[in-house]
Design a protein around this nucleic acid. Structure first.
Lengths: 141, 141
DNA sequence: GAATAAAGATTAGCACAGCTAACGATCGGG
DNA sequence: CCCGATCGTTAGCTGTGCTAATCTTTATTC
């Protein structure tokens, strides 16, 4: 396969990913949680409890930024922030049950909105998409 | 195809899209343009000149928010803002050549970073991905 | 083991991005 | 000609991003 063909696939994939996330993001309004908080909460729910530095690295923001995002999550009862047992410099941040519930509900709405669009596809198209997604998962891993 | 399979594809696609954009977004730092400005500039470059309301709708933000994003773009020489000839309430916002140049360069870096990852794939995987992307393009259109 | 370095988190203070409410200017229909 | 609607900006709030500085705690070094 030629280089320009690879570039073309990458370009189409890029544009589609932007459109896709723009579409599903509309579902997030009903969670009542801001995008940065929702994203950080997602990392906590799927990655388990972690320190501030780890959470900041996962979200690719600086520590002070994450410190205040966590402050908001804690204030809204979506996460807890406790001193680490072993290293008292560190902080252990974890999603609360309420946080997990709200995140899962929002994510479910996103995925359902997306699945709804996939219903329009013919069976052969669904299979082609499914195989493409399998490949994509390895690409972005 | 069963509903839960559709849901599974949607879920994997959703996660992959998030990871994909998180990856390519790292390339944007070198543009020296903030994410909201870069995104608005992209709409101007690919959609051509438009009014503030149109640009705000495209970006799914309110008019006052877009007003200040445009202010920043104009200040940095990336866009122009002129009175509409026919309707003097309206404003015609357009990307400058400099704006086009900077946006294209950034987008090119994004796509190249993505294409680089696709190089690792076997030819059959590339073809499967290409077909999946074709389907995806229709899904998000 | 005391002094010093390094690491983790927060605070302070800045620019910018998101919102609603309120405003001024312009346009269109009666 | 005026009255309502439309377009954009301004004002003022909260929140998000940054760097620099600070504080506490842990690790290193002699």
């Amino acid at each position: 396969m030629r280089d320009d063909q690879l570039h073309e696939i990458a370009s189409a994939l890029h544009s589609s990913a932007i459109r896709l996330l723009r579409t599903v993001r509309r579902e997030d309004r009903s969670t009542g949680i801001s995008p940065p908080r929702l994203s950080a909460l997602s990392v906590l729910v799927f990655g388990g409890p972690m320190s501030l530095a780890e959470l900041a690295a996962a979200e690719e923001v600086r520590a002070p930024t994450m410190s205040r995002i966590v402050e908001g999550l804690v204030r809204d009862g979506l996460a807890t922030r406790d001193a680490d047992a072993g290293d008292r410099r560190r902080v252990r941040i974890a999603a609360t049950d309420e946080g997990k519930k709200r995140l899962e509900a929002g994510r479910e709405r996103r995925v359902r909105a997306l699945a709804e669009r996939l219903r329009r596809l013919a069976d052969s198209e669904r299979r082609a998409l499914a195989r493409g997604v399998e490949v994509l998962e390895r690409v972005v891993r």
